[in-house]
């Protein structure tokens, strides 16, 4: 497999950034940001993968009998998911207020400042 899983993560990131740059709808842009975030899950899990490894949970596995994947990056992926969810929630809240005050969710139409 070589470096292809890492490159896949980078590809997902660039696709998401393309969506962000060309977006005409803030909800769509927030979706793109979530895709960009998921590229980091891919990268983390690719870094932690061990060939033939199973989940690092020893409730039904005798320690030492099978290789396990890296639990540290899995814990980081959990943090990543939580942060992604909170960012999405706050951005959606901001979008609701924008829609109410400016009557548009197109970021390209949001040019004027309004107090």
């Amino acid at each position: 497999m070589g470096i292809w899983p890492y490159l896949a993560a980078g590809w997902v990131l660039l696709v998401a950034l393309y969506g962000l740059v060309t977006s005409h709808n803030l909800i769509h842009a927030i979706g793109c940001l979530a895709v960009a975030q998921s590229s980091t899950y891919l990268l983390l899990l690719a870094v932690g993968y061990r060939r033939g490894g199973t989940a690092p949970v020893y409730s039904d596995l005798t320690p030492g009998t099978r290789p396990v994947v890296d639990p540290v990056v899995q814990a980081l992926a959990l943090t990543d998911v939580v942060v992604g969810a909170t960012v999405t929630a706050l951005l959606l809240a901001l979008t609701i207020q924008l829609r109410k005050r400016h009557h548009t969710v197109d970021p390209q139409a949001l040019t004027g400042l309004k107090g």
């Binding site: 470096i3 690719a46 932690g48 993968y49 061990r50 060939r51 890296d70 639990p71």
Partner: peptide, 22 residues
């Protein structure tokens, strides 16, 4: 891509942090 080419290969058996965490 240049950075990825220097990463440990995908699926490597060598995970020092994993061994310590377990």
């Amino acid at each position: 891509a240049a950075a990825c080419s220097r990463l440990p290969p995908f699926g490597t058996p060598d995970h020092p942090y994993a061994a310590r965490a377990v």
